[in-house]
Amino acid sequence: MRLRHLACAAVLAVALPACAVTAGEHASILDAQTLRIGVKGDQPGLGLRTGVDTYAGFDVDVAYYIAGELGVAREDVEFVQVTSEEREDVLIDDEVDLVLATYSITQLRKTVVNFGGPYYVARQDILVRADNTDIQGVEDLAGRKLCQGAGSNSANRIIEERGIDAQRVERATYSECIDLLAVGVVDAVSTDDLILAGYLAEAPSAFRLVGEPFTSEKYGIGVAKEDVAGCEAVNRAVTQMYQDGTASRLLDKWFGDTGLDLVRTVPQFEGCG
């Protein structure tokens, strides 16, 4: 009897620390059989909803590649449409495993989520109508009507931080800004060059990219804060994507015809944890 008690005590003594170790671990994307990935649904060229559960764009293709590198087949990837405001919450609440949604890495966001990548460093640029030859740089926006999407900071950067006297027009989304630009209500739209290139690819003859980029927008892959190992695996996948030429091919596929100066070398990662 006593020996049996001892045996139990011994088993407990061995098992307890082992239990403690497993309890501390969060489910990692490394062990995932399926992946839920948050993408944009209204961003042509990056993440655009094309059917009930289907999405298309650069972000979507990168998401498929990373899922593949993590050992998850195409059919086991489930896309979830997220808005800009939701991106942190869906990761914190474990509603998605990854976020690829023109998700800029910032020091503040890094305090609540992990960022794999960036998989691309976009820069703020300016889109004008194709027939507009006056605007050649950010300084030429003085006195012009500049449209920005709600919640965006792009026009403020030009007007307040750069001190250029442009007239700010605000609309709910950048798609609405593009519509205003097409009909001539505004003179320019300024935001990330990849986003602008996505609109340009839809109507190549209507618009022109000014091509005077400023500021860096590091598009990261959002991973849960606890999943450092998963974030590191995402970084290895992005490295691989640039090494095997997939990144270059995907950039050409979505933005090749826009005249955008595409960077085809692996970006400097942000670091996990």
Binding site: L6, A9, A10, V14, P17, A18, V21, E232, G273
Partner: peptide, 28 residues
Amino acid sequence: RSTYEENSAAATAGIGLVAAAAAALVAV
């Protein structure tokens, strides 16, 4: 980081084993 984490998990388990062996021996 991954070496450290593997190592520290193994170390925790190792401490448990030592404690268990010593406790069982004392009891016997």
